[in-house]
Design a binder for these strands. Structure first.
Ligand SMILES: Nc1ccn([C@H]2C[C@H](O)[C@@H](COP(=O)(O)OP(=O)(O)OP(=O)(O)O)O2)c(=O)n1
Ligand SMILES: [Mg+2]
Length: 861
DNA sequence: GCGGATCAC
DNA sequence: TATGGTGATCCGC
């Protein structure tokens, strides 16, 4: 592997072991003498603090690789064959999700900043030029790239590579302007295009192609030509069946070119097979190294070939991502816009130990950060201090405050404490970040402006350090008014449910948590990307990463449903902790989880039998299970020993860990995604959801006006929504359920319980109103997880209550599917799954949200 | 919840 | 002389 390379080269050609990102392939670097570049970079870096730190990191990476390698060597052949089974099944399941019906286009401007600069100063044309300074350059034009000059390279090194290099300082306003021009063009092809950074976007051109009878390639030509005529800038495009592939494609014929990958499985597979893994977004320098040096994986094809190793050594979510990459899969839907989760500000300066100086830098940064937060109307409660020491070591120190804040005084006060604890230290960078925002999300969530606009904002700037209390009372004096306003809207649009909802006096409008946001200027159509190359609110939520240690990752892994085809066998815990059916590990102390788990296996089996295939049911053993209401009694160790050899479609879940994981609803959406790779940016334009479905934040915002404090938690695919009285904290209602595949329906949202505790409610009349809110969060969660259908059981308690329930659910959009009476064998699966008898009802989630949109989206005044 | 790493642009 | 800034995710504690 790397033996020969490192030992011989280190002595004679030391630069070969200094691996920088600059050695990676990149458009415009084809004819570059890589060795020469590497040598020069090495010569100028050698011995520097930066270099030493890179060496330190390199060492750590090597250790990681070695560790991974050892682990792979220890795997027995039986381990591998077991993992291979998992891989084979997973491949089938992933393959089933392949969607070749959509046409995605990824467009990326060529040498963006540099091209813009050339536009405003044509004399730069044809000459090697870089945007940035001698310390760092942001990008370089293609003339400069011939010399090996590229983004993120220090300017002084670039100048050594290319003595005639012209430097132009950055000017974000210009780039933003041209970015906007280009986006106007994009909008013509996909009004909901997903904007990445200033210079790239994803467009779903399926409809345009269909409507105009043009191919993806023709649309790409036209779009690029249009971008050129509108901006004077060239760009490159990639067209493929999903975003991951489209992104890879846009780089192929860059600059000023395009590449179309036909939506045909074998074409895709051929394309992907020889593709170096580093080309895939999310696989960077480290991951590439680990996969290559420890596992011998170089191409995407290898990912499939060595799938068993991946599943043995990485977390399930990472392995899933890798495998899906190997299959050429990627996201094909248009994700919902996501709001930012943190805001930060950091500055580099010449390293110093001078405490006075450091404190004053800190104060400046706190001030800038505070200003930014105010501009966005954000308040947050977790503060993180970031330091880069003179030796380039990165340190971070965080505190969570009792109250939300955006004041520079608050920030500085706590930041100072954090910094103080680190002194003395020589520092070259200080940064501050605020996260854990107060509920609202508004920003980037277009539909949100509805309520926001009702809130008359005063300038909440400068809450004098009153320390605490920033809250609503101070900022939004007109709170009551705004709330009642929104409430009215709410009620009127509810007429359909009036009889059930009854009154809604909703006396105490709390507004307690309403943040002081304003974000006035939300221009009607603004992708949320803003200034500078910074604000790209992009995330790749799939971070394949090297999980290490942990012989068996399978235990605490992510929650991802895995479908297995296994013969039915009795369930028991191998060695007392490992499920013999699926291998999941659950220590005996995980009583509840074990219960759910064994129930789940049994239920799946029953459903399978019911749903056709094998009719050989074995009623006996299941009967008793059914007695216990869902959560309590225990199905002993399933003795359904009568294992028919029927092959069963089992779905099992890997619980994330012992406890529910607290997540904000926004985060939630991605928690259960099946297909990992996503680099999901913010949908641009303000229209947000196509049909203006109520977003999670709409629902939450609306609920707060009703003094409801809603929360959602997840445990793997399971979720729990709780509604509390915002004043007392007392629980008013909750909904629980699970997101899971259902026969022939893809993912469905299974609503287990919607429980309301009217005792604790002040206004016991609006119980069902609360139920609607709690349910809406669950439904929206389902929507975000990709469910199309929601299922529930209107439980039979008493005639009166039951019919009321059915009526209620029917009104809000559910339809009766069947009666589960308990008298038919076929009911057993339902009874087991649902924990009782009643009326099974289904609803189309999209329709449901549409129907409810009037409620949660106060139509514009 | 915190801290370190990784990644993208 | 000189190696950026912003935001996100994941993992292991
Ligand atoms: N580490 C980086 C990478 C990029 N950028 C900025 C400058 C680029 O102009 C812009 C777009 O990034 P790209 O990766 O798309 O690079 P270019 O557009 O400059 O070149 P090309 O897309 O032709 O390869 O983002 C940056 O500031 N820092
Ligand atoms: Mg570009």
């Amino acid at each position: 592997m790397d033996n020969g390379e490192s030992s011989t080269n280190n002595s004679s050609r030391p630069w070969e072991s200094y691996n920088t990102v600059f050695t990676n392939a990149k458009a415009g670097m084809e004819g570059v003498d890589k060795e020469k570049v590497q040598r020069i970079v090495y010569e100028l870096s050698k011995g520097s603090k930066y270099f030493q730190n890179e060496e330190r990191k390199e060492t750590l990476m090597k250790q990681k690789i070695e560790h991974m390698h050892d682990r792979s060597a220890k795997l027995s052949s039986s381990d591998l064959s077991n993992y291979q089974k998992v891989v084979d099944r997973r491949i089938l399941e992933l393959e089933a999700t392949r969607d070749l019906s959509r046409i995605w286009l990824h467009v990326d401007m060529d040498a963006f900043y540099a091209a813009v600069e050339t536009l405003s100063n044509p004399s730069l044309g044809g000459k090697p030029m870089a945007v940035g300074g001698l310390s760092m350059i942001s990008t370089a034009n293609y003339e400069a790239r011939k010399f090996g000059v590229r983004a993120a390279m220090p300017g002084f090194i670039a100048r050594k590579l290319c003595p005639d290099l012209i430097f132009v300082p950055v000017d974000f306003t210009k780039y933003t302007h041209y970015s906007e021009l280009a986006r106007k063009v994009f909008r013509n092809y996909d009004p909901q295009f997903i904007a990445g950074s200033l210079d790239e976007a994803y467009l779903d051109i399926t409809e345009v192609c269909r409507e105009r009878g043009l191919s993806g390639g023709e649309i790409a030509e036209e779009l690029r030509s249009s971008v050129y005529s509108e901006t004077g800038l060239t760009c490159s495009a990639g067209v493929a069946a999903n975003r991951l592939l489209a992104k890879v494609c846009s780089d192929i014929n860059k600059p000023n070119g395009q590449f179309i990958l036909q939506n045909d499985r074998s074409t895709v597979m051929t394309f992907i097979s020889s593709l170096p893994i580093r080309k895939i977004g999310g696989i960077g320098k480290v991951t590439e190294h680990i996969l290559k040096d420890a596992l011998g994986i170089k191409t995407c094809e290898d990912m499939v070939q060595k799938g068993s190793l991946l599943y043995a050594l990485f977390s399930q979510s990472s392995a899933d991502f890798f495998l899906s990459v190997g299959l050429g899969l990627g996201e094909t839907d248009t994700p919902q816009a996501r709001s930012r989760k943190s805001i930060s500000c950091e500055r580099t300066f010449s390293a110093t130990e001078d405490e006075k100086l450091l404190y004053s830098k800190l104060a400046e940064i706190a001030e800038m950060l505070s200003d930014d937060m105010k501009k966005e109307g954000l308040i947050a409660r977790t503060l993180t201090l970031k330091l880069k020491t003179a030796t380039f070591e990165i340190r971070s120190r965080a505190v969570s405050l009792k109250r939300y804040t955006c004041s520079s005084e608050d920030i500085l006060k706590h930041a100072t404490k954090l910094l103080k604890a680190e002194l003395p230290v020589s520092v070259r960078l200080i940064g501050l970040r605020m996260s854990q925002f107060s509920d609202e999300i508004r920003h980037s969530d277009p539909s949100q402006e509805t309520i926001t606009k009702f809130i008359v904002q005063k300038d909440f700037s400068r809450q004098n350090l009153d320390d605490n209390k920033i809250d609503a009372s101070k900022n939004c004096l007109s709170n009551d008014e705004s709330m009642s306003l929104s409430f009215d809207t709410h009620e009127t649009s509810y007429d359909q449910l009036k009889d059930v909802l009854e009154n809604e006096e909703q006396s105490q409008l709390d507004a307690n948590k309403v943040p002081p946001n304003q974000e006035c200027t939300r221009k009607e159509e603004r992708p949320q990307v803003l200034e500078g190359d910074a604000l790209l609110i992009k995330h790749k939520e799939y971070k394949p990463d090297t999980s290490h240690s942990m012989n068996d990752n399978s235990s605490a892994q992510n929650s991802e449903p895995v479908t297995l085809f296994l013969p039915i066998e009795p369930l028991f815990w191998i060695d007392g902790y490992k499920c013999n059916l699926c291998g999941i590990e659950l220590p005996p102390s995980f009583v509840e989880e074990r219960q759910e788990h064994s129930d789940f296996h049994l239920a799946q089996r029953l459903q399978n039998e019911e749903s056709g295939s094998s009719s050989s049911t074995t009623p006996t053993s299941k009967r008793r299970i059914l007695g216990k209401e869902k959560a309590n009694s225990k199905p002993k160790k399933q003795k359904q020993s009568e294992k028919d050899d029927a092959t069963c479609h089992l779905v099992l879940y890997y619980p994330h860990t012992i406890s529910f994981q607290e997540r904000t609803p926004e985060e939630m959406k991605m928690a259960l995604n099946l297909i990992p790779p996503k680099l999901n940016l913010s949908p641009s334009n303000s229209l947000g959801e196509p049909k203006s479905l109520p977003s999670m934040s709409d629902i939450l915002t609306s609920s707060r006006a009703r003094n409801l404090d809603l929360k959602i938690q997840t445990l793997g695919p399971f979720f729990r929504v709780t509604g509390k009285n915002a004043d007392t904290g007392g629980e008013i209602g909750r909904a629980e359920g699970v997101v899971r595949p259902w026969f022939g329906q893809g993912l469905v949202l299974h609503l287990d319980t919607i429980r309301l505790t009217k005792e604790t409610m002040k206004m016991d009349k609006s119980v069902l109103g609360v139920g609607l809110y709690v349910g809406a969060v669950a439904i929206r969660h389902g929507y975000d997880c990709g469910c199309r259908t929601a299922q529930l059981l209107a439980i039979y308690d008493s005639d009166l209550y039951h019919s009321k329930l059915v009526r209620f659910y029917r009104r809000i959009g559910f339809e009766e599917v069947k009666e589960v009476s308990g008298s038919l064998i076929g009911d057993m699966a339902d009874m087991l799954v649902w924990g009782g008898v009643g009326t099974r009802m289904d609803a189309n989630i999209h329709h449901l949200l549409l129907k409810w949109s009037k409620v949660f989206l106060k139509s514009n005044v």
